[in-house]
């Protein structure tokens, strides 16, 4: 394979079969509206935190959905819970509870402290 000049790096793919989806499942079990996200970015466009730092609820939603939990784990605490996103979300996702539950889920499922 090497002679073709490229390899498929193992780490680049979202390994959907092996990723940990417990965080996602925990959230949708307790806040079913999380499923309704269409990734329009309305939440992150108005986000008080997103103005200053890399913090996008849309991005976190998608990553958690795919079981890519590394960024969400460290990034969620940047949320100020101000609630603007909840007022904007066209799909009625209870975004504040999503953040709240996600923090809880990481506490619950991670062996190390969040």
């Amino acid at each position: 394979m090497d002679k073709f000049g490229f390899t498929i790096s193992k780490g680049r793919q979202i390994n959907y079969d092996q990723n940990d989806r417990r965080i996602y499942n925990y959230i949708i079990e307790n806040e079913p509206s999380f499923r309704n996200c269409i990734a329009c970015g309305g939440c992150s466009g108005s986000c008080s935190a997103g103005n200053f730092t890399r913090f996008s609820l849309r991005e976190l939603n998608i990553l958690i959905n795919r079981g890519e939990n590394d960024l969400p784990r460290t990034n969620l605490k940047k949320c100020m819970l101000c609630g603007k996103c909840t007022l904007i979300c066209p799909r009625g996702v209870n975004t504040r509870n999503v953040v709240f539950l996600a923090k809880q889920a990481f506490k619950r499922f991670d062996s190390y402290a969040f």
């Binding site: 008080s48 819970l81 101000c82 504040r96």
Partner: peptide, 12 residues
């Protein structure tokens, strides 16, 4: 666009 007052976090 400023920084949140903190009350929403407190309420949570």
């Amino acid at each position: 666009g400023g920084v949140c007052c903190g009350r929403p976090l407190m309420l949570a």
